[in-house]
Nucleic acid binder design. Structure first.
Lengths: 189, 189
DNA sequence: AACTTTGTACAGTTTTTACTGTACGTACTT
DNA sequence: AAGTACGTACAGTAAAAACTGTACAAAGTT
C-alpha cells in the first residue's frame, strides 16, 4: 500500500510522474498567494498516502522543520490542509483537503471576503465625508463637480463590491453548483 | 472641473478622502498578484479625472518614470487600464477600466484559465503514463495499488479543473450575471 | 521533579522582487 | 537629415520575502 514497499526502480517511476504534477500545482499556487515552496509542500501532501508530520515533510522537501512549520500554517490558514489526530503519535499530522471545490470556496470566503469588506467599509466612510464636504462647499461649483465625480465613482465601486459579496455567498452556500454543476471524473484513460 | 483649479485647502480636503480609498484599493490588489505600489498607481488612475501619461504618474507617485512604465504594463496585461488615444499629445495616455465587473472577469480569463489549462495538460499526460505503468507492472499488486490511488486523485483533479473552466466560461460569457445579478449603485448617501 | 519530545518565535542569512538611472531605439518635428 | 521627445531594456541598487539555526515554551514521559 505504501510507496516505500516498492523497489528503487518502481519508486522512481512513480515519483517521476508525481514530480511533474507537483511542480505544476506548486507553480500555479501563486494565484492563491502561496509561495512556490509551500505550493510544493502542498503537492507532496496531495500524493501522500497518509497524513504526514513536520519531520517527514522536511525530509522529503529537504528543507528545515521551521520552514515546514510556517508552510503548513499558511496552508492551514487557507484551509488547504487539515490537522489530523492519530492516537499513538504525539506529533501533529496534516493531510490536504481533498475536496478542491471546498478549497476553492474557502479561498474566496477567507481572502476575498476580507478584502471586499474592508473596501466597502472604507468606501462608506469616504462617501460620508464626501457628503459633508458637499454641504460645506455647496457654493463652489468646481468643488461640487469634483466631489460629485468622486461620489459617483465610489458608489459604483460599492455596488461592485456588493455584487462580489453576493458571488462569494453563492460560492459558500453552494448555489454556484446549481448554475455550474460538478461533473464526475472521467472513467476511462 | 479639474482638482487643480481649487485652492490648496480644498484640494487637500479632497485628497485626504481619496488617499484612504487608494491605500485600501492598493493594499487589496495583491489578491490579483499586483505589487502594492502598482496598486497605488491604479488607485491614482481611478480617481484621475482624465487619462494620464507616464510623467504625470511619476510626479504624483513620486517615483521614477521607469517604474511607472513597468507598473502600467502590469496593469495593461491584466486589462485593468486601457491605453487611450488623444490627438495633440504624443505621449501614451492611460485610464483605468471603469467596468470592474469586466476587470474581474478578465482577471480569471487571463490568469486562472492559463493555470487551469496547464494543470489539465500536465495531469492528462501524467494519467497516460500511469496507465502505461499499470500495464507494465500489472502483476505487482503494491505497484498497482499505488498507481490506482494516484490515478483516482488525478482524475478527480481533472474533473475539478474542468469545473473551473466552466465557471470561467460562465464569467466570460456573462452567464454569471444571470445567476448573481448586478444591482445598481445606491442613490442616497 | 528531571528529562524528552515537539512546535514555533526570533534573529540572521540568502534569495527574490521592486525600484532607479542610464542608455538607446523609434518616431515625430523642423 | 539633424534634432527632440518618448518609452523601455538593461544593469545596478535597495527593499522585501523566504529560509535556516538556535533557543525556548508547552506538554508528555519516566
Amino acid at each position: 500500500m505504501s510507496l516505500y514497499q516498492l523497489d528503487e526502480e518502481r519508486q522512481a517511476a512513480v515519483q517521476k510522474i508525481r514530480k511533474r504534477v507537483i511542480e505544476n500545482i506548486g507553480r500555479n499556487m501563486d494565484l492563491y498567494g502561496i509561495p512556490l515552496s509551500t505550493g510544493h509542500l502542498y503537492g507532496l501532501l496531495y500524493f501522500a498516502d497518509k497524513p504526514m508530520n513536520l519531520d517527514e515533510m522536511g525530509q522529503e522537501m529537504k528543507m528545515s522543520k521551521t520552514s515546514m512549520s510556517t508552510g503548513v500554517r499558511t496552508l492551514l490558514d487557507n484551509k488547504m490542509v487539515n490537522k489530523v489526530w492519530e492516537k499513538g503519535s504525539r506529533k501533529d499530522l496534516y493531510e490536504v483537503e481533498y475536496d478542491w471545490y471546498q478549497t476553492f470556496v474557502d479561498f474566496f470566503d477567507i481572502k476575498w471576503r476580507k478584502s471586499v469588506e474592508s473596501n466597502i467599509l472604507v468606501l462608506r466612510k469616504a462617501l460620508q465625508e464626501t457628503e459633508k464636504l458637499l454641504k460645506e462647499y455647496e457654493d463652489d461649483p468646481v468643488m461640487v463637480a469634483v466631489l460629485e465625480a468622486d461620489r459617483t465613482k465610489m458608489r459604483e465601486a460599492v455596488a461592485y463590491y456588493r455584487w462580489l459579496e453576493r458571488l462569494i455567498d453563492a460560492f459558500v452556500d453552494g448555489d454556484i453548483f446549481k448554475y455550474v454543476p460538478k461533473e464526475p471524473p472521467e472513467g476511462g484513460s
